[in-house]
Design a protein around this nucleic acid. Structure first.
Lengths: 246, 246
DNA sequence: GACAACATCGTACGATGTACCGAGTTTGGG
DNA sequence: CCCAAACTCGGTACATCGTACGATGTTGTC
Protein backbone atom coordinates (compact mmCIF):
# COMPACT_ATOMS: atom_id res chain seq x y z
CA UNK A 1 0.00 0.00 0.00
CA UNK A 2 1.27 2.30 -0.48
CA UNK A 3 1.26 6.07 -0.81
CA UNK A 4 2.25 6.69 -4.37
CA UNK A 5 -0.92 5.22 -5.79
CA UNK A 6 -2.67 8.50 -5.09
CA UNK A 7 -3.56 10.57 -8.11
CA UNK A 8 -1.28 13.38 -9.19
CA UNK A 9 -3.21 16.18 -10.83
CA UNK A 10 -6.72 15.77 -9.52
CA UNK A 11 -8.43 17.75 -12.26
CA UNK A 12 -6.82 15.67 -14.97
CA UNK A 13 -7.96 12.46 -13.29
CA UNK A 14 -11.42 13.89 -12.71
CA UNK A 15 -11.95 14.70 -16.36
CA UNK A 16 -10.96 11.20 -17.38
CA UNK A 17 -13.18 9.62 -14.74
CA UNK A 18 -16.16 11.64 -15.88
CA UNK A 19 -15.23 10.93 -19.49
CA UNK A 20 -14.84 14.61 -20.31
CA UNK A 21 -11.91 14.01 -22.62
CA UNK A 22 -11.85 15.64 -26.01
CA UNK A 23 -12.11 13.08 -28.78
CA UNK A 24 -9.27 13.61 -31.18
CA UNK A 25 -9.76 13.88 -34.92
CA UNK A 26 -6.42 13.66 -36.63
CA UNK A 27 -3.90 10.87 -36.35
CA UNK A 28 -4.14 7.10 -36.50
CA UNK A 29 -7.21 5.37 -35.07
CA UNK A 30 -6.44 4.18 -31.54
CA UNK A 31 -6.17 0.40 -31.40
CA UNK A 32 -7.50 0.32 -27.84
CA UNK A 33 -9.66 2.43 -25.61
CA UNK A 34 -9.68 3.37 -21.95
CA UNK A 35 -12.28 0.78 -20.99
CA UNK A 36 -10.31 -2.06 -22.52
CA UNK A 37 -7.21 -1.04 -20.59
CA UNK A 38 -9.22 -0.74 -17.38
CA UNK A 39 -10.83 -4.14 -17.87
CA UNK A 40 -7.46 -5.80 -18.42
CA UNK A 41 -6.06 -4.10 -15.35
CA UNK A 42 -8.99 -5.27 -13.23
CA UNK A 43 -8.53 -8.85 -14.41
CA UNK A 44 -4.89 -8.75 -13.34
CA UNK A 45 -5.61 -7.10 -10.00
CA UNK A 46 -8.33 -9.65 -9.29
CA UNK A 47 -5.87 -12.50 -9.53
CA UNK A 48 -2.57 -10.92 -8.50
CA UNK A 49 -3.59 -8.14 -6.14
CA UNK A 50 -2.73 -4.47 -6.43
CA UNK A 51 0.96 -5.09 -5.89
CA UNK A 52 0.92 -7.60 -8.71
CA UNK A 53 -0.52 -4.98 -11.04
CA UNK A 54 2.17 -3.44 -13.20
CA UNK A 55 1.94 -1.44 -16.36
CA UNK A 56 4.11 -4.00 -18.11
CA UNK A 57 1.74 -6.83 -17.20
CA UNK A 58 -1.29 -4.94 -18.42
CA UNK A 59 0.47 -4.14 -21.68
CA UNK A 60 1.57 -7.76 -22.19
CA UNK A 61 -1.95 -8.92 -21.49
CA UNK A 62 -3.20 -6.63 -24.24
CA UNK A 63 -0.38 -7.43 -26.63
CA UNK A 64 0.91 -3.87 -26.86
CA UNK A 65 4.06 -2.07 -25.79
CA UNK A 66 4.18 -0.83 -22.23
CA UNK A 67 4.35 2.80 -23.17
CA UNK A 68 1.30 2.57 -25.40
CA UNK A 69 -0.84 2.45 -22.29
CA UNK A 70 0.11 6.03 -21.61
CA UNK A 71 -1.84 7.02 -24.67
CA UNK A 72 -5.02 6.08 -22.85
CA UNK A 73 -4.15 6.71 -19.24
CA UNK A 74 -1.87 9.45 -17.93
CA UNK A 75 -0.37 7.36 -15.12
CA UNK A 76 -0.94 4.33 -12.94
CA UNK A 77 -2.71 6.33 -10.25
CA UNK A 78 -5.38 7.45 -12.68
CA UNK A 79 -5.72 3.89 -13.96
CA UNK A 80 -6.48 2.72 -10.44
CA UNK A 81 -9.06 5.49 -10.05
CA UNK A 82 -10.75 4.27 -13.21
CA UNK A 83 -10.63 0.68 -11.99
CA UNK A 84 -12.29 1.60 -8.71
CA UNK A 85 -15.07 3.43 -10.51
CA UNK A 86 -15.55 0.60 -13.00
CA UNK A 87 -16.11 -1.88 -10.19
CA UNK A 88 -18.94 0.28 -8.87
CA UNK A 89 -20.68 -0.02 -12.21
CA UNK A 90 -21.36 -3.71 -11.50
CA UNK A 91 -24.57 -4.97 -9.95
CA UNK A 92 -27.90 -3.44 -9.08
CA UNK A 93 -28.35 -0.28 -7.03
CA UNK A 94 -29.56 -1.01 -3.51
CA UNK A 95 -32.33 1.60 -3.26
CA UNK A 96 -34.41 -0.42 -5.72
CA UNK A 97 -34.73 -3.32 -3.25
CA UNK A 98 -38.32 -3.57 -1.98
CA UNK A 99 -39.23 -3.47 1.70
CA UNK A 100 -38.23 -1.31 4.64
CA UNK A 101 -35.26 1.01 4.80
CA UNK A 102 -33.64 -1.53 7.05
CA UNK A 103 -34.00 -4.32 4.49
CA UNK A 104 -32.59 -2.08 1.79
CA UNK A 105 -29.65 -1.06 3.92
CA UNK A 106 -28.86 -4.66 4.77
CA UNK A 107 -28.98 -5.55 1.09
CA UNK A 108 -26.67 -2.67 0.31
CA UNK A 109 -24.09 -3.63 2.92
CA UNK A 110 -24.22 -7.29 1.93
CA UNK A 111 -23.77 -6.46 -1.74
CA UNK A 112 -20.76 -4.26 -0.95
CA UNK A 113 -19.33 -7.07 1.14
CA UNK A 114 -19.60 -9.35 -1.90
CA UNK A 115 -17.93 -6.79 -4.16
CA UNK A 116 -14.96 -6.55 -1.79
CA UNK A 117 -14.59 -10.30 -1.93
CA UNK A 118 -14.82 -10.30 -5.70
CA UNK A 119 -12.22 -7.54 -6.00
CA UNK A 120 -10.07 -7.63 -2.88
CA UNK A 121 -7.63 -5.08 -4.31
CA UNK A 122 -10.23 -2.34 -3.91
CA UNK A 123 -9.50 -2.48 -0.19
CA UNK A 124 -5.78 -2.22 -0.77
CA UNK A 125 -6.11 0.93 -2.84
CA UNK A 126 -5.75 4.09 -0.84
CA UNK A 127 -8.97 6.01 -0.38
CA UNK A 128 -7.45 9.16 -1.78
CA UNK A 129 -8.82 8.65 -5.26
CA UNK A 130 -11.29 11.09 -6.77
CA UNK A 131 -14.92 10.02 -6.96
CA UNK A 132 -16.08 8.71 -10.31
CA UNK A 133 -19.64 8.75 -11.63
CA UNK A 134 -20.41 5.13 -10.74
CA UNK A 135 -19.09 5.46 -7.23
CA UNK A 136 -21.14 8.57 -6.76
CA UNK A 137 -24.21 6.84 -8.12
CA UNK A 138 -23.80 4.11 -5.51
CA UNK A 139 -23.44 6.79 -2.85
CA UNK A 140 -26.61 8.43 -4.11
CA UNK A 141 -28.36 5.08 -3.95
CA UNK A 142 -27.15 4.50 -0.39
CA UNK A 143 -28.49 7.90 0.64
CA UNK A 144 -31.84 7.01 -0.92
CA UNK A 145 -31.97 3.80 1.09
CA UNK A 146 -32.01 5.85 4.25
CA UNK A 147 -33.80 8.97 3.02
CA UNK A 148 -37.24 7.71 4.05
CA UNK A 149 -36.13 7.66 7.67
CA UNK A 150 -36.49 11.44 7.64
CA UNK A 151 -33.09 11.96 9.23
CA UNK A 152 -31.60 15.44 8.75
CA UNK A 153 -29.23 15.60 5.78
CA UNK A 154 -26.00 15.83 7.74
CA UNK A 155 -26.98 12.87 9.91
CA UNK A 156 -27.92 10.95 6.79
CA UNK A 157 -24.45 11.36 5.36
CA UNK A 158 -22.85 10.47 8.69
CA UNK A 159 -24.98 7.33 8.91
CA UNK A 160 -23.98 6.20 5.43
CA UNK A 161 -20.37 6.73 6.48
CA UNK A 162 -20.79 4.52 9.53
CA UNK A 163 -22.21 1.65 7.53
CA UNK A 164 -19.74 2.04 4.70
CA UNK A 165 -16.73 2.10 6.98
CA UNK A 166 -18.01 -0.84 8.96
CA UNK A 167 -18.52 -2.94 5.84
CA UNK A 168 -15.09 -2.13 4.46
CA UNK A 169 -13.41 -2.90 7.76
CA UNK A 170 -15.09 -6.24 8.23
CA UNK A 171 -14.46 -7.24 4.63
CA UNK A 172 -10.82 -6.39 5.11
CA UNK A 173 -10.62 -8.65 8.13
CA UNK A 174 -12.40 -11.45 6.34
CA UNK A 175 -10.07 -11.17 3.38
CA UNK A 176 -6.95 -11.41 5.50
CA UNK A 177 -7.62 -15.09 6.01
CA UNK A 178 -8.35 -15.63 2.34
CA UNK A 179 -5.24 -13.78 1.21
CA UNK A 180 -3.09 -15.59 3.73
CA UNK A 181 -4.20 -18.91 2.33
CA UNK A 182 -3.70 -17.77 -1.26
CA UNK A 183 -0.15 -16.63 -0.62
CA UNK A 184 1.12 -19.24 1.79
CA UNK A 185 -1.21 -22.17 1.22
CA UNK A 186 -1.95 -22.28 4.92
CA UNK A 187 -5.62 -22.25 5.88
CA UNK A 188 -6.80 -20.27 8.88
CA UNK A 189 -7.49 -23.46 10.82
CA UNK A 190 -3.98 -24.73 10.05
CA UNK A 191 -2.51 -21.40 11.04
CA UNK A 192 -4.18 -21.49 14.44
CA UNK A 193 -3.14 -25.10 14.92
CA UNK A 194 0.45 -24.30 13.99
CA UNK A 195 0.71 -21.25 16.20
CA UNK A 196 -1.24 -22.48 19.19
CA UNK A 197 1.86 -23.54 21.19
CA UNK A 198 3.49 -20.18 20.51
CA UNK A 199 0.34 -18.34 21.47
CA UNK A 200 -0.13 -20.42 24.61
CA UNK A 201 3.33 -19.40 25.69
CA UNK A 202 3.20 -15.70 25.02
CA UNK A 203 -0.44 -14.83 25.48
CA UNK A 204 -0.50 -15.41 29.22
CA UNK A 205 -3.54 -14.99 31.42
CA UNK A 206 -1.52 -12.61 33.59
CA UNK A 207 -0.82 -10.16 30.80
CA UNK A 208 -3.88 -10.65 28.62
CA UNK A 209 -6.65 -11.78 30.97
CA UNK A 210 -9.60 -10.73 28.87
CA UNK A 211 -8.18 -12.13 25.65
CA UNK A 212 -7.61 -15.46 27.37
CA UNK A 213 -11.12 -15.43 28.75
CA UNK A 214 -12.88 -14.82 25.44
CA UNK A 215 -10.48 -17.15 23.67
CA UNK A 216 -11.27 -19.95 26.12
CA UNK A 217 -14.95 -19.24 25.56
CA UNK A 218 -14.41 -19.92 21.85
CA UNK A 219 -15.14 -16.38 20.74
CA UNK A 220 -12.58 -16.64 17.94
CA UNK A 221 -13.79 -19.96 16.58
CA UNK A 222 -17.50 -19.61 17.13
CA UNK A 223 -20.01 -19.48 14.36
CA UNK A 224 -21.44 -16.08 15.17
CA UNK A 225 -21.85 -14.19 11.92
CA UNK A 226 -20.03 -11.16 13.25
CA UNK A 227 -20.66 -9.09 10.15
CA UNK A 228 -24.42 -9.45 10.45
CA UNK A 229 -24.23 -9.00 14.21
CA UNK A 230 -22.36 -5.71 14.02
CA UNK A 231 -24.58 -4.43 11.26
CA UNK A 232 -27.65 -5.21 13.36
CA UNK A 233 -26.19 -3.21 16.28
CA UNK A 234 -25.55 -0.23 14.04
CA UNK A 235 -29.04 -0.30 12.57
CA UNK A 236 -30.49 -0.63 16.06
CA UNK A 237 -28.65 2.54 16.92
CA UNK A 238 -30.08 4.29 13.89
CA UNK A 239 -33.58 3.15 14.81
CA UNK A 240 -33.21 4.52 18.30
CA UNK A 241 -32.17 7.85 16.86
CA UNK A 242 -35.34 7.90 14.78
CA UNK A 243 -37.36 7.41 17.94
CA UNK A 244 -35.56 10.29 19.65
CA UNK A 245 -36.22 12.73 16.84
CA UNK A 246 -39.91 12.00 16.83
CA UNK B 1 -0.87 0.02 -0.52
CA UNK B 2 0.18 -2.23 -1.62
CA UNK B 3 0.42 -5.98 -1.43
CA UNK B 4 4.07 -6.67 -0.94
CA UNK B 5 4.22 -5.03 2.45
CA UNK B 6 2.72 -8.18 3.91
CA UNK B 7 5.05 -10.30 5.98
CA UNK B 8 6.78 -13.25 4.38
CA UNK B 9 7.41 -16.01 6.89
CA UNK B 10 4.87 -15.39 9.60
CA UNK B 11 6.62 -17.38 12.28
CA UNK B 12 9.86 -15.48 11.78
CA UNK B 13 8.04 -12.16 12.09
CA UNK B 14 6.11 -13.39 15.10
CA UNK B 15 9.23 -14.32 17.03
CA UNK B 16 10.74 -10.91 16.41
CA UNK B 17 7.54 -9.13 17.39
CA UNK B 18 7.34 -11.03 20.63
CA UNK B 19 11.06 -10.51 21.17
CA UNK B 20 11.75 -14.24 21.22
CA UNK B 21 15.05 -13.87 19.41
CA UNK B 22 18.09 -15.64 20.74
CA UNK B 23 20.66 -13.19 22.02
CA UNK B 24 23.98 -13.95 20.38
CA UNK B 25 27.19 -14.42 22.31
CA UNK B 26 30.08 -14.44 19.92
CA UNK B 27 30.98 -11.81 17.41
CA UNK B 28 31.19 -8.02 17.51
CA UNK B 29 28.74 -6.05 19.64
CA UNK B 30 25.88 -4.75 17.52
CA UNK B 31 26.09 -1.01 17.09
CA UNK B 32 22.31 -0.66 16.96
CA UNK B 33 19.28 -2.56 18.13
CA UNK B 34 15.85 -3.35 16.77
CA UNK B 35 14.11 -0.58 18.70
CA UNK B 36 16.44 2.10 17.38
CA UNK B 37 15.81 0.99 13.82
CA UNK B 38 12.07 0.91 14.43
CA UNK B 39 12.06 4.37 15.98
CA UNK B 40 13.97 5.83 13.04
CA UNK B 41 11.60 4.19 10.60
CA UNK B 42 8.58 5.57 12.46
CA UNK B 43 10.05 9.08 12.36
CA UNK B 44 10.45 8.85 8.60
CA UNK B 45 7.02 7.36 8.04
CA UNK B 46 5.46 10.08 10.19
CA UNK B 47 6.78 12.78 7.91
CA UNK B 48 7.02 11.07 4.52
CA UNK B 49 4.29 8.43 4.65
CA UNK B 50 4.68 4.72 4.09
CA UNK B 51 5.61 5.19 0.45
CA UNK B 52 8.34 7.59 1.51
CA UNK B 53 9.79 4.96 3.81
CA UNK B 54 12.74 3.21 2.22
CA UNK B 55 15.44 1.10 3.74
CA UNK B 56 18.04 3.47 2.33
CA UNK B 57 16.45 6.45 4.08
CA UNK B 58 16.29 4.67 7.40
CA UNK B 59 19.93 3.67 7.07
CA UNK B 60 21.03 7.20 6.13
CA UNK B 61 19.08 8.55 9.08
CA UNK B 62 21.01 6.23 11.36
CA UNK B 63 24.35 6.80 9.68
CA UNK B 64 24.87 3.18 8.67
CA UNK B 65 24.98 1.28 5.42
CA UNK B 66 21.69 0.18 3.96
CA UNK B 67 22.40 -3.50 4.27
CA UNK B 68 23.33 -3.19 7.92
CA UNK B 69 19.64 -2.87 8.72
CA UNK B 70 19.18 -6.47 7.70
CA UNK B 71 21.21 -7.48 10.72
CA UNK B 72 18.34 -6.33 12.91
CA UNK B 73 15.32 -6.86 10.72
CA UNK B 74 14.84 -9.66 8.19
CA UNK B 75 12.95 -7.54 5.65
CA UNK B 76 10.88 -4.42 5.24
CA UNK B 77 7.60 -6.21 5.90
CA UNK B 78 8.75 -7.28 9.34
CA UNK B 79 10.00 -3.77 10.02
CA UNK B 80 6.52 -2.42 9.33
CA UNK B 81 5.02 -5.04 11.65
CA UNK B 82 7.36 -3.86 14.38
CA UNK B 83 6.48 -0.22 13.68
CA UNK B 84 2.77 -0.94 13.98
CA UNK B 85 3.26 -2.68 17.29
CA UNK B 86 5.54 0.07 18.60
CA UNK B 87 2.86 2.69 17.95
CA UNK B 88 0.45 0.74 20.14
CA UNK B 89 2.89 1.00 23.01
CA UNK B 90 2.20 4.75 23.24
CA UNK B 91 -0.37 6.23 25.56
CA UNK B 92 -2.52 4.93 28.36
CA UNK B 93 -4.76 1.88 28.10
CA UNK B 94 -8.43 2.83 27.84
CA UNK B 95 -9.84 0.40 30.41
CA UNK B 96 -8.24 2.43 33.20
CA UNK B 97 -10.47 5.43 32.45
CA UNK B 98 -12.99 5.94 35.27
CA UNK B 99 -16.72 6.02 34.70
CA UNK B 100 -19.20 3.94 32.74
CA UNK B 101 -18.35 1.46 30.01
CA UNK B 102 -19.69 3.99 27.57
CA UNK B 103 -17.31 6.69 28.77
CA UNK B 104 -14.38 4.28 28.59
CA UNK B 105 -15.31 3.19 25.09
CA UNK B 106 -15.59 6.75 23.91
CA UNK B 107 -12.19 7.51 25.40
CA UNK B 108 -10.74 4.48 23.66
CA UNK B 109 -12.14 5.39 20.25
CA UNK B 110 -11.06 9.02 20.60
CA UNK B 111 -7.55 8.01 21.63
CA UNK B 112 -7.26 5.70 18.62
CA UNK B 113 -8.50 8.51 16.41
CA UNK B 114 -5.67 10.66 17.73
CA UNK B 115 -3.10 7.93 17.14
CA UNK B 116 -4.16 7.63 13.50
CA UNK B 117 -3.67 11.35 13.09
CA UNK B 118 -0.29 11.22 14.76
CA UNK B 119 0.82 8.31 12.56
CA UNK B 120 -1.23 8.39 9.37
CA UNK B 121 0.88 5.68 7.76
CA UNK B 122 -0.64 3.09 10.11
CA UNK B 123 -3.79 3.33 7.99
CA UNK B 124 -1.83 2.87 4.78
CA UNK B 125 -0.23 -0.35 5.98
CA UNK B 126 -2.13 -3.44 5.02
CA UNK B 127 -3.89 -5.17 7.87
CA UNK B 128 -2.20 -8.46 7.12
CA UNK B 129 0.52 -8.00 9.69
CA UNK B 130 0.84 -10.37 12.64
CA UNK B 131 -0.31 -9.12 16.03
CA UNK B 132 2.40 -7.89 18.33
CA UNK B 133 2.26 -7.78 22.13
CA UNK B 134 1.36 -4.10 22.39
CA UNK B 135 -1.40 -4.36 19.82
CA UNK B 136 -2.79 -7.35 21.65
CA UNK B 137 -2.60 -5.49 24.95
CA UNK B 138 -4.70 -2.71 23.48
CA UNK B 139 -7.16 -5.27 22.24
CA UNK B 140 -7.28 -6.79 25.71
CA UNK B 141 -7.91 -3.34 27.14
CA UNK B 142 -10.69 -2.70 24.65
CA UNK B 143 -12.36 -5.95 25.61
CA UNK B 144 -12.12 -4.95 29.26
CA UNK B 145 -13.84 -1.64 28.50
CA UNK B 146 -16.90 -3.57 27.41
CA UNK B 147 -16.62 -6.63 29.65
CA UNK B 148 -18.79 -5.15 32.39
CA UNK B 149 -21.71 -5.02 29.98
CA UNK B 150 -22.03 -8.75 30.46
CA UNK B 151 -22.24 -9.42 26.73
CA UNK B 152 -21.43 -12.98 25.65
CA UNK B 153 -17.81 -13.39 24.62
CA UNK B 154 -18.41 -13.74 20.89
CA UNK B 155 -20.60 -10.63 20.85
CA UNK B 156 -17.97 -8.80 22.85
CA UNK B 157 -15.37 -9.45 20.18
CA UNK B 158 -17.79 -8.51 17.41
CA UNK B 159 -18.60 -5.25 19.19
CA UNK B 160 -14.96 -4.32 19.55
CA UNK B 161 -14.60 -5.02 15.83
CA UNK B 162 -17.44 -2.66 14.97
CA UNK B 163 -15.97 0.20 16.94
CA UNK B 164 -12.43 -0.43 15.76
CA UNK B 165 -13.41 -0.56 12.11
CA UNK B 166 -15.54 2.50 12.43
CA UNK B 167 -12.74 4.51 14.01
CA UNK B 168 -10.22 3.46 11.38
CA UNK B 169 -12.59 4.26 8.57
CA UNK B 170 -13.47 7.72 9.81
CA UNK B 171 -9.85 8.53 10.57
CA UNK B 172 -8.96 7.50 7.05
CA UNK B 173 -11.56 9.87 5.63
CA UNK B 174 -10.42 12.70 7.84
CA UNK B 175 -6.81 12.16 6.83
CA UNK B 176 -7.58 12.29 3.13
CA UNK B 177 -8.10 16.03 3.40
CA UNK B 178 -4.95 16.49 5.47
CA UNK B 179 -2.83 14.42 3.09
CA UNK B 180 -4.26 16.18 0.07
CA UNK B 181 -3.21 19.51 1.48
CA UNK B 182 0.23 18.23 2.44
CA UNK B 183 0.95 16.90 -1.04
CA UNK B 184 -0.66 19.51 -3.25
CA UNK B 185 -0.85 22.57 -1.01
CA UNK B 186 -4.56 22.85 -1.74
CA UNK B 187 -6.83 23.05 1.28
CA UNK B 188 -10.15 21.26 1.32
CA UNK B 189 -12.03 24.55 1.07
CA UNK B 190 -9.91 25.58 -1.92
CA UNK B 191 -10.45 22.21 -3.55
CA UNK B 192 -14.21 22.52 -3.29
CA UNK B 193 -14.08 26.07 -4.57
CA UNK B 194 -11.93 25.04 -7.52
CA UNK B 195 -14.05 22.06 -8.46
CA UNK B 196 -17.47 23.52 -7.85
CA UNK B 197 -18.08 24.47 -11.50
CA UNK B 198 -17.00 21.00 -12.62
CA UNK B 199 -19.20 19.38 -10.00
CA UNK B 200 -22.16 21.59 -10.84
CA UNK B 201 -21.89 20.41 -14.42
CA UNK B 202 -21.54 16.71 -13.90
CA UNK B 203 -23.39 16.07 -10.66
CA UNK B 204 -26.82 16.78 -12.05
CA UNK B 205 -30.03 16.60 -10.07
CA UNK B 206 -31.41 14.20 -12.65
CA UNK B 207 -28.71 11.61 -12.16
CA UNK B 208 -27.83 12.19 -8.51
CA UNK B 209 -30.97 13.55 -6.88
CA UNK B 210 -30.20 12.61 -3.31
CA UNK B 211 -26.61 13.79 -3.48
CA UNK B 212 -27.80 17.15 -4.78
CA UNK B 213 -30.40 17.39 -2.06
CA UNK B 214 -28.05 16.76 0.86
CA UNK B 215 -25.38 18.90 -0.79
CA UNK B 216 -27.79 21.80 -1.09
CA UNK B 217 -28.70 21.31 2.56
CA UNK B 218 -25.02 21.80 3.43
CA UNK B 219 -24.49 18.27 4.67
CA UNK B 220 -20.90 18.28 3.37
CA UNK B 221 -19.93 21.60 4.86
CA UNK B 222 -21.85 21.50 8.11
CA UNK B 223 -20.24 21.39 11.49
CA UNK B 224 -21.73 18.13 12.65
CA UNK B 225 -18.98 16.14 14.34
CA UNK B 226 -19.69 13.08 12.28
CA UNK B 227 -17.19 10.92 14.12
CA UNK B 228 -18.88 11.51 17.46
CA UNK B 229 -22.30 11.20 15.87
CA UNK B 230 -21.61 7.80 14.34
CA UNK B 231 -19.97 6.54 17.49
CA UNK B 232 -23.02 7.57 19.50
CA UNK B 233 -25.28 5.61 17.12
CA UNK B 234 -23.14 2.50 17.49
CA UNK B 235 -23.08 2.72 21.27
CA UNK B 236 -26.84 3.27 21.27
CA UNK B 237 -27.12 0.03 19.35
CA UNK B 238 -24.97 -1.75 21.90
CA UNK B 239 -27.09 -0.39 24.74
CA UNK B 240 -30.24 -1.62 23.11
CA UNK B 241 -28.71 -5.08 22.82
CA UNK B 242 -28.00 -5.04 26.55
CA UNK B 243 -31.65 -4.31 27.19
CA UNK B 244 -32.73 -7.20 24.99
CA UNK B 245 -30.48 -9.72 26.72
CA UNK B 246 -31.78 -8.85 30.14
C1' DG C 1 46.35 -17.73 19.38
C1' DA C 2 43.04 -20.06 16.51
C1' DC C 3 38.57 -20.48 15.12
C1' DA C 4 33.70 -19.91 14.96
C1' DA C 5 30.14 -16.68 15.03
C1' DC C 6 28.86 -12.58 14.17
C1' DA C 7 28.38 -7.27 12.29
C1' DT C 8 29.11 -4.27 8.43
C1' DC C 9 28.16 -2.87 3.97
C1' DG C 10 29.78 -2.28 -1.24
C1' DT C 11 28.22 -4.19 -5.30
C1' DA C 12 24.86 -5.94 -8.16
C1' DC C 13 20.36 -7.68 -9.93
C1' DG C 14 15.72 -7.60 -11.14
C1' DA C 15 11.50 -4.91 -10.66
C1' DT C 16 8.99 -0.86 -11.13
C1' DG C 17 6.85 3.79 -13.06
C1' DT C 18 7.49 6.80 -16.57
C1' DA C 19 10.17 10.78 -19.34
C1' DC C 20 11.79 11.30 -23.78
C1' DC C 21 12.05 10.89 -28.56
C1' DG C 22 11.90 8.96 -33.11
C1' DA C 23 9.06 6.71 -36.40
C1' DG C 24 4.94 5.68 -38.58
C1' DT C 25 -0.16 6.89 -39.63
C1' DT C 26 -4.15 9.45 -40.49
C1' DT C 27 -6.72 13.57 -41.83
C1' DG C 28 -8.23 18.44 -42.39
C1' DG C 29 -7.17 22.70 -44.76
C1' DG C 30 -5.19 25.00 -48.55
C1' DC D 1 -4.00 16.53 -54.17
C1' DC D 2 -0.62 17.29 -50.87
C1' DC D 3 1.55 18.25 -46.78
C1' DA D 4 1.90 19.66 -42.22
C1' DA D 5 -0.35 19.00 -37.96
C1' DA D 6 -2.03 15.85 -34.72
C1' DC D 7 -1.94 11.76 -33.29
C1' DT D 8 -0.55 6.49 -31.97
C1' DC D 9 3.01 3.41 -30.99
C1' DG D 10 6.77 1.72 -28.42
C1' DG D 11 12.06 1.18 -27.74
C1' DT D 12 15.46 2.98 -24.75
C1' DA D 13 16.92 4.88 -20.60
C1' DC D 14 16.84 6.45 -15.87
C1' DA D 15 15.84 6.80 -11.07
C1' DT D 16 14.32 4.20 -7.28
C1' DC D 17 13.20 0.28 -4.83
C1' DG D 18 14.01 -4.28 -1.90
C1' DT D 19 17.42 -7.36 -1.05
C1' DA D 20 20.87 -11.64 -2.28
C1' DC D 21 25.64 -12.37 -2.06
C1' DG D 22 30.05 -12.32 -0.40
C1' DA D 23 34.26 -9.96 1.19
C1' DT D 24 36.16 -7.91 5.26
C1' DG D 25 36.71 -6.95 9.87
C1' DT D 26 35.58 -7.82 14.90
C1' DT D 27 34.69 -10.32 18.99
C1' DG D 28 34.18 -14.14 22.46
C1' DT D 29 35.36 -18.93 23.68
C1' DC D 30 38.36 -22.75 24.08
Amino acid sequence: MSDSDGPGDLTRGMRLLWRAVGGSRRGPKPGLDVDTVVRAAIAIADSDGLAGLSMRKVADHLGVGTMSLYTYVPAKAELVSLMLDAVDAEGALPHTVPGSWRARTEAWATEDWAVYHRHPWTLQASSRHPLGPHTLRRFDSALRCLAVTGLPEDELVATVDVIDNYTRGMARRSLEAVELERRTGVSERQWWAGHEPLLETYVTAAEFPEVRRVWAAGAFHGDLDSFAYGLARILDGVERRLGEAG
